[in-house]
């Protein structure tokens, strides 16, 4: 019993470490891409992305499928073309409620997007595309 507890604590600690390190990477890449200024992620949007999307959609994700479709930490490094594609994917999948996946929300209801959060993401994605296409 004690041993399992210990293992769990260690695992929790490690995953915490991992999460903070990947989270750090995001702010880092954001700074790197700043000169081009193709994409800005306001804090409010970043928080929703982090809380509700990042777990599956980042480079180190265990879900091959989710990773293939979108890696949030890589967004700031993408070309114009890729950015428009990915941002449109975000806007569309949130709009149609394809994302977050229904099955996932059933299991973790707190991971659902509120209407306000969904609107925030959609407006941000659409606005960013318009800026890039201008």
């Amino acid at each position: 019993m004690k041993k399992t507890f210990l293992t769990i604590t260690v695992l929790a600690f490690l995953s915490g470490l991992f999460l903070t390190s990947t989270a750090f990477k995001i702010t880092n890449t954001q700074k790197e891409s700043a000169p081009e200024n193709l994409l800005t992620i306001p804090d409010s949007v970043n928080k929703v992305l982090q809380d509700k999307c990042f777990d599956c959609h980042h480079s180190g994700s265990e879900s091959m499928k989710a990773k293939m479709k979108l890696k949030i930490d890589k967004l700031p490094t993408l070309s114009k073309r890729k950015l428009v594609s990915k941002l449109d994917g975000i806007a569309e999948s949130v709009e149609t409620k394809d994302m977050p996946p229904k099955k996932f929300i059933k299991k973790y209801p707190e991971q659902a997007l509120t209407d306000a959060e969904a609107k925030l993401l959609i407006d941000w994605a659409n606005g960013s595309i318009d800026k890039i296409m201008k």
């Binding site: 073309r81 594609s85 449109d88």
Partner: peptide
């Protein structure tokens, strides 16, 4: 629309 075309092309490529 233009953006949907860009996305379609990106998805084809992927």
């Amino acid at each position: 629309s233009k953006r949907k075309r860009i996305k379609a092309l990106d998805e084809i490529s992927e």
